[in-house]
Amino acid sequence: MKVTFKDVARLAGVSTQTVSRVTHNARNVSEKTRQRVQDAIRQLGYIPSKSAQLLGRNQSRTIGLVTLDLIHYGAAMQAAGIRRAAREKGYGLLLGVAEETTVESIHEALKDLMAQQIDAVIINIAITSEHAVSLTQQYPDLPIVFSDTEPAPELVTVMSDHCRGAAMAAQHLLANSRRRIFFVHGPLDSAAARLRREGWLQALAREGLKPVGECVANWSGGQAFRLTSQMLQKRDDGTVEVDGILCASDQMALGVLKALNTNNVNIPGEIAVSGFDDTPDSALYQPALTTIRQDFFRLGKLIVESLLALLNEQSNGNTPELITRMALTKNVEVSLVVRESTE
């Protein structure tokens, strides 16, 4: 059953006019009452009509960002790039943190953000293109840009060029005569992780090679340390030979370097290591880490520009044509940064 503003008014113990004032961001509502109405909206999962809001008030000039916990460097820097770009365009940014990478969690975060009258939203969570298309259909009045979803004709996606960057790192190891390469990649429900792995595979295939092994470290340095230590035990038993390791993030590469150092493996003499992201500390790793640099501020700028283009289409009354007219994919260039861990 569809939740209406009358249901919200009944739960909050206020009039329907008060609910309308809150959803239209009117000033003549006390903070206590506003909070009570917003709590009722969240509890019931009520989604105010975006078209009605735009008719009743000016745009809030607020963008929502649905993301996971920002403990990982890539997610945190992408959020920073989006926040800077939004501010330059005169928009504020509200974070909606999803508890896990499920469609249900994304829905909850979206409902919470929409209760705060966002104008548009960026979803930086691993989600299949099928689920992403479903979201755009369920929220037809809400412009959405995806930044960890594989491209599809119906979607607007903006990402770093993960596949090309990963291929560059693999080609660099191959050029340095590394032929027995091990992969440490992120969770394959992430489009970024899948594309990076695909880039590695393509580069090796061009040389008639396959990885000697691979593991999933879920972007965690600690897990990368444990899994690399296990790989080294097998290496000592003679069951696996490795002379190069490709990591899908610098955080995981840090765990790999620690495991190699702990086991007295010479880097890069015995095993060369490459990462992805170019965190500010990667030059301080021991040894300094070769990596792929993402331009997070350029990425944030393109994400925000794409989102505002969608919002502009909606404001011009082109909502029925929104997806077919604006669907696009943008890949942001990346670059190879060579340091001591590979040469």
Rank of each mutant, 00 (worst) to 15 (best):
A9L: 03
C247W: 13
D295I: 00
L68K: 08
L322A: 08
V242K: 06
T157D: 02
A152M: 07
R197C: 14
F297N: 15
P320H: 12
F183I: 13
S134Q: 13
M1S: 15
P48S: 09
P151V: 05
K234Y: 06
P151T: 04
Q137D: 03
T342F: 05
R293L: 05
A283T: 13
G56T: 01
V14S: 14
T342Q: 14
A283Y: 15
R34V: 08
E321Y: 04
D119V: 06
S220E: 10
G45L: 02
A327S: 10
S15L: 06
R206L: 05
S220A: 10
L11H: 01
H72G: 10
G186S: 07
A120E: 00
R21L: 12
R87Y: 14
K301I: 00
A288Y: 10
E241Q: 12
I245L: 05
V273Y: 08
D295W: 02
T290H: 11
D7C: 12
R339Y: 09
M1F: 10
S282G: 09
N264F: 09
H24C: 12
Q116S: 13
R34G: 12
A98S: 11
K210Y: 14
V240Q: 08
Q138A: 12
L232V: 01
V304C: 05
S282W: 09
L174T: 13
K111W: 02
V240G: 00
E130C: 00
A175I: 08
R61P: 06
G269S: 11
G165D: 08
V158C: 04
S60W: 01
L310M: 05
P211E: 07
E150T: 10
K258C: 10
V158W: 04
E31P: 06
L209D: 03
K210E: 09
L289W: 09
I245A: 02
L307K: 04
V29K: 15
S60E: 07
I106M: 03
Q35C: 01
N58V: 04
S177E: 11
F183K: 11
P151Q: 07
L299Y: 12
Y46W: 06
T291M: 08
Q35K: 15
L173C: 14
V337N: 13
Q59M: 06
F183Q: 15
L257C: 08
N25P: 00
F296K: 10
G96E: 01
E343T: 14
D141F: 00
G317F: 15
T290W: 06
V184Q: 13
A12N: 03
D148P: 04
Y139I: 03
L142Q: 03
A191P: 00
C247Q: 10
G56Y: 00
A170K: 02
